[in-house]
């Protein structure tokens, strides 16, 4: 398709530490289309943040390095882009918001200064124009008394307001892709609702594609069109939000959804996946989820499953989808039903 904004092909980002090579992102492929909101979901240590930092070439090097794969942003492979070109792209064509709005704003400069800096870096406009644009942007993201807030410092604002400023900053140059790394995790639920609402509106009005990194499946259901589930550095399942949440295919996704406390149901005991998320390490054989998986059979421990393509553009990295494994699949299905 021609409307692909971002395409990752078999991306490998490894960290070279004193205790060896750590494959934080171990072969991730995903696409983001124009005007689409894609959620990247996973627990801590699954490589979702490193994936997003890789796109922006913000992985600290050393120790981190993109060792293999392609990052295609509109027919341009960013892996080989020069530093100068990346500077042009960052903030202009691809923008990013981070989890902690306090640490991503400079405490020594006013909100206006920080907005104007970004604007003037990418566009040839006068200071006065940039200031007026900044005030407009602040109004756009719903900040009351925007003309005063421009001259205030980050510490004078609340967490929700700071995140709004971050969004204003990221929207300053009308980027084609917005990468949001856990944008609401540090916020309270009522503020989270406001920010999600704002992001949804910006996505509708400006057709900005959003790649939303989160661990919260509730947030995904609110805002995303498509979901990519990651586990231990790999994509394990992909599909539309509705299908993933309603009929997950991969045992990990199933377990994750079942272990959420539900406000509707009155179950006494929660389902829980035994064990913990494995640490990424080199030379791992077999499916990464196999040691925690209740359906695991011999093959899971010996071979690495491929990403099986299912109907409706879905895919799942699980041998249960392999038709040559007829018996095992049937057995697993009956277990699920019971």
């Amino acid at each position: 398709m021609s409307d692909v904004v971002l395409e990752l092909k078999d991306l490998h980002t490894h960290f070279f530490t004193d205790s060896g090579e750590v494959p934080a992102v171990d072969g991730v492929s995903l696409t983001v289309h124009k005007g689409e909101v894609v959620g990247v979901v996973g627990e801590s240590g699954c490589g979702k943040s490193v994936t997003s930092l890789s796109v922006m070439q913000l992985v600290p090097n050393p120790p981190g390095k993109i060792v293999d794969g392609e990052i295609n942003f509109k027919d341009e492979n960013l892996v080989h882009a020069s530093k100068k070109r990346m500077k042009e792209i960052r903030g202009n064509e691809i923008a990013m918001i981070f989890q902690e709005p306090m640490t991503s704003l400079d405490p020594l400069f006013t909100i206006g200064n920080q907005l104007i800096e970004g604007l003037r870096l990418h566009e040839k406009i006068s200071k006065k124009e940039a200031r007026n644009r900044s005030i407009e942007l602040l109004k756009l993201v719903g900040i009351p008394r925007a003309d005063q807030v421009v001259d205030e410092y980050p510490h004078q604002l609340s967490g929700g307001m700071r995140q709004r400023v971050m969004i204003a900053m990221s929207m300053a140059c009308n980027p084609e892709l917005l990468i949001a790394d856990e944008p609401t995790t540090a916020l309270d639920v009522t503020i989270q609702a406001q920010i999600l609402d704002l992001m949804r509106n910006l996505n509708k009005e400006k057709e900005t594609a959003i790649m939303l990194i989160t661990h919260d499946l509730g947030v995904v259901a609110e805002i995303c069109d498509r979901v990519v589930v990651m586990y231990a550095g790999k994509v394990i399942e992909e599909g539309t939000t509705r299908e993933i949440l309603k009929s997950p295919n991969h045992p990990y996704t199933k377990g994750l959804i079942r272990s959420l406390p539900n406000m509707k149901q009155k179950e006494q005991k929660l389902y829980s996946i035994p064990g913990t998320v494995p640490k990424p390490k080199m030379g791992r054989v077999g499916c990464r989820f196999a040691p925690r998986c209740e359906f695991a059979f011999e093959r899971c421990f010996q071979e690495d499953p491929e990403l099986f393509q299912l109907e409706n553009n879905r895919s799942s990295r699980c041998f249960l989808n392999d038709e040559t494994e007829g018996d095992v699949t049937k057995n697993a299905e009956t277990t699920i039903r019971n």
Binding site: P144, S158, G160, M161, D188, V189, T190, I191, Q192, A193, Q194, L196, D197, D216, L217, G218, V219, V220, A221, E222, T241, R242, L245, K246, I257, L260, N262, M263
Partner: peptide, 25 residues
């Protein structure tokens, strides 16, 4: 009421009346 309506639920079919509160605490 507002707090409960603000909680995102992982159920894409759920239709809710949402109360989005203005401003901060």
């Amino acid at each position: 009421q507002a707090l409960l309506s603000a909680v995102p639920t992982p159920d894409p079919d759920e239709v809710r009346e949402r109360v989005i509160l203005e401003g901060d605490v």
